[in-house]
Design a protein around this nucleic acid. Structure first.
Lengths: 215, 215, 215, 215
DNA sequence: TATGAATGAGTCTTCATTCAT
DNA sequence: TATGAATGAAGACTCATTCAT
């Protein structure tokens, strides 16, 4: 049931998509992620990654065959984890499309709050991915976005969406959720759960969905 | 009345902040912008910029002293134009804070639709800016963001904002507007003006502002 | 007792300052020295140094961080070796200032005959040294020159110097000794030892010192 | 009777070889000389020369066809003036070889004191001269050196030279005279004439020539 | 001769990557 | 996997020189 080989078995139907542990990344990828986040993929040297990982340069190549492989590893892990969690959320939400919107938005915000650096790189360094990896990444992103757009489509078909432009509203919701990765700090005043429920509210307001649930 | 030396006299009180001409950038900066947008600052070589500008490599250096200067030029021009336009919009909007919110959001969306590539680079390559230029850029960004946050604060003080979290809502509005630069295409089906009025609606809904105007 | 970290333990009181082995320089510095000697610092490319050292260009940078570092390495090694040898000579000469002049001149000539290329670069490329290295080099040169000027001053104070212009004579002696590096060839007809004793004679004549020793 | 086209008619038999005016060089060569003296030929850019000359870069090329031509111009002018002056001195000295030595040494020192920068470049940048110019320069230098070595040979043949190594002594005299260009400052405490007579004394002492004149 | 724009060739330097130990 | 040495390819930048105006 997992999206990719990197996925970590989060899809159990018990709300585990809401729980986040620290550092799900192997140490070398973690180091690379830190570096890529600070200076970008092209602005990072393998030596910097090695230094941050506490390894020698050939030590990096022992684990990963190339610099590109580091980026691919980070991007794949991020996309897989996000998809697994959001899918679990959507499935757990049941049949009501508005509940599904709620769950998907909550999952999106939780993920981007907890995995900001990964998500940021996965979003901003697509252009640095080589041919095949880029195509795979874009496919993963599209698959991911469909979880929300399908829910919105279903809600609209059910007459639950008040806005005359549900597709535009859905895009606005997506971007405001993914942007969380750019500014949110885990050590700041806001808990991820608060932020998530705030953004669920925003999303429903934006889509002009009556929060009361199906008649 | 201009924000920076690069500003181009847009602040006249006649709605000129809504009018956009093509390519306000000198050709070398335009070429650099295209390249930076495609591969990022560090992923772009001076040779690529030169080729795209139809110049030799030293030809670039005849006009700009360094690759960094190209980035600074793009970022400064973008921030200056955005601020000048948004300030003009805010001033033209008059005393009502909700009108000011409307105007600022409209200006934000129009700018990010028309100047997507510039805005994208100005936002994504801050980390590639050298010390001083980075500080100046961050100051310009903060000044820019105050135009919206002040308007929201004023509206909240006037009891016009329904959301219990106006600051968070304002941030969500900002990010959904700036994200326009990431996906909007001028040659797509949507006219910038339509998009802008759609996003004004989104913003008011998000902030839970009664669109009817002051009682 | 050594002048600098580069010094090589020459100061033992056994006349070892008179013995010279070939090539005390690491191979990369040796190659750089040959190139700098032929075309000057600015007239030499790293490629030439690499080719002469039998390395690739990055191979040079593996050992030395910059072209400037090559020059600094050569200059420092030369100044340190010269000072160590001359100091050893002066100390071995004992209390008599004329004996000290003899020893210092002998050491100067031996060094410039054996280490002509190093000495030539150290003297002619001072202007190519960067700020700090230049200051350090000038300090080393001044310290070096004091070994002879102190000896001459002492001899003059003891009434042993006949010339009415001992300072000018000392400078003439210094320059004629250092000039040895410009024209002397180790594979020529003159042995360094012969040249050295000839120049000791010249120096005493120039200073109008009675060679018979103290009354 | 002039050595080269650049020579300036100094050979009149009236002691005019002792008189020096300021700046015998055209302004562009003067600027080049200043730059070459500070950073060396290869360390100097045409732009620096142009700036120092108060001209534009193409302005330099209007006067001289290449950077190399600047160096050739400086070197030729220096060698020609030195030869003309020293030849005049030697001829004026008359038949006595010791008088000729005196005159040549005096001329050498006066020239290197008054024309230090030119002489320094002519001596240190030989290696930067292209093929033909280098050969010509070396020929000029040899011709120049013969003026002193012939005089010493003649004095030795006449039994007037006391040193057993007249050739080595002559070389020492030459180098100590040319070294004047390296350290002497016209604005220092020593007048060129004093220095010259001091060095004449040094030269005679070094050669062990009895200053009293021919028996 | 000044100005401004331009460039082929080359400079120093760095980078991702490899290999022997 | 660490260390050290090494390198082909490329990157930013500079230089001497030229040409149109």
């Amino acid at each position: 049931m997992n999206g990719t080989p990197e996925s970590a078995g989060i899809a159990e139907p018990d709300g585990s998509w809401r729980r986040f542990d620290a550092a799900p990344l192997p140490p070398v990828l973690q180091a690379a992620q830190d570096c890529f986040g600070e200076h970008g993929y092209h602005g990072t040297t393998i030596r910097e990654v090695a230094a941050r990982a506490g390894l020698s340069v050939p030590g990096i190549y022992h684990h990963y065959p190339s610099k590109q492989a580091l980026l691919v590893g980070i991007a794949q892990a991020a996309m897989a984890e996000l998809y697994d969690r959001t899918l679990a959320a959507a499935e757990e939400a049941g049949a009501d499309p508005v509940d599904r919107i709620r769950a998907v938005v909550e999952s999106l915000v939780l993920f981007h709050a907890h995995r900001g650096p990964s998500a940021f790189i996965a979003a901003s360094e697509i252009r640095s991915l080589d041919g095949d990896a880029r195509a795979a990444h874009i496919a993963a992103r599209d698959r991911q976005q469909r979880l929300l757009s399908d829910a919105v489509d279903d809600a609209a078909a059910a007459g639950r969406v008040g806005t005359p432009v549900p597709h535009e509203a859905m895009r606005a919701v997506t971007t405001m959720c993914t942007a969380v990765a750019q500014w949110y700090r885990l050590d700041g005043p806001l808990r991820p759960e608060e932020l998530a429920s705030t953004y669920v509210r925003f999303a429903l307001d934006l889509l002009r969905i009556d929060g009361a649930g199906p008649a």
